[in-house]
């Protein structure tokens, strides 16, 4: 219980930090990093929720985190490619 609370609480704090940075800072790259930190917070939380009391860990949130990580990485890559393209366009103008 205490371990889960600590781990999940760390997830909540990561999420809040990411959300704050996402709202406050303007540059695209910072927003993207903030978004990824928010994502890590959510993954933390899901993993913490998977383990409640003395029961066997719940495989459903584990599977969601697993696919979530890969999807988050590819979404970040797409956003980075778009950001770079935007910058190229700005330079050309």
């Amino acid at each position: 219980m205490m371990t889960s609370l600590l781990y999940g609480g760390a997830g909540v704090i990561l999420f809040a930090l990411g959300l704050w940075a996402f709202l406050v800072y303007e540059p695209l790259l910072r927003k993207l990093i903030a978004l990824n930190i928010m994502g890590s917070g959510v993954f933390h939380l899901l993993i913490a929720i998977a383990e409640r009391g003395a029961l066997a860990p719940d495989p459903v949130p584990h599977a969601m985190v697993l696919t979530g990580i890969v999807v988050a990485v590819s979404a970040t890559a797409l956003a980075l490619a778009m950001g770079r393209r935007l910058e190229d366009d700005d330079d050309a103008r």
Binding site: S4, L5, V12, F15, A16, A48, R52, L55, D58
Partner: peptide, 21 residues
């Protein structure tokens, strides 16, 4: 405030309840 509220909710969620596992 949002973080505090989420922590509050988390504390209630982490008890053994019916789940899909």
């Amino acid at each position: 405030l949002l973080a505090l509220w989420l922590l509050w909710v988390l504390r209630d969620v982490l008890v053994p309840t019916p789940r899909l596992a």
